[in-house]
Amino acid sequence: MIHDTQYIIEVENLVKKFGSFVANDNLTFSVKKGEIFGFLGANGAGKTTAMKILCGLSHPTSGKVKVAGYDIYTQKEKIKQSIGYMSQKFSLYEELTVYENFRFYGGIYGMTRLDIQEQTTQLLSRLGLSQYRNRIINTLPLGWKQKLAFSVAVIHRPAIVFLDEPTGGVDPITRRQFWDLIYDNASRGLTVFVTTHYMDEAEYCNRLSIMVDGKIKALDTPQGMKSGMGCATMQDVFVALARN
């Protein structure tokens, strides 16, 4: 194991079994601080299972897992404090205003009112949505909601944010704006752990892993993967790996 503080997620020989079914078969990988890490795989390859373990929602069967420097077996609560999570299904309350959503999620993480207000102001101005602070969420366009959901997920200044297919079904411009947001946050030191079905998005990641049948089949930079396998696009890489 690489005992280096530059790694924020360290996974060694992670195994997760459901009965006789092996969902995660001996995963070993690590994610660097401030990195955008793509976590790819076909449906049912075990992505969601692994992600749940990293978020402290599920126990591994065996293996070592450290997230943000905390041990997954003994320091789950510490881990939950230092991560943010956003899924395809937004986690915003549709009937509440933008600020009420921020206040609620900030409150969950035990932030002070003043702190929540400061963070909200800052995050909204970064999105250019400051004037919509008191708008009800369900009156806003889909693309904005998505960016707000991301901001809500990072209100408590987590070290890592987990994004589970954040851009499914979104129009091409909004999808790219969302990635701009990811880049912006990564450039400020946030580690981003993201799953996606769009292969062009795989290219935006600093490094990525591709899972097939519970195993990590490839782990490299997008460029390294393509040249290593002699493929022109990530789509070709993915198909070649999954079909094997």
Binding site: A42, N43, H197, M199, F238, V239, A242, R243
Partner: peptide, 13 residues
Amino acid sequence: DEPTTGVDAVSRI
């Protein structure tokens, strides 16, 4: 109607 939404790249092909 959206038969391939949420389906992985291989299955889509």
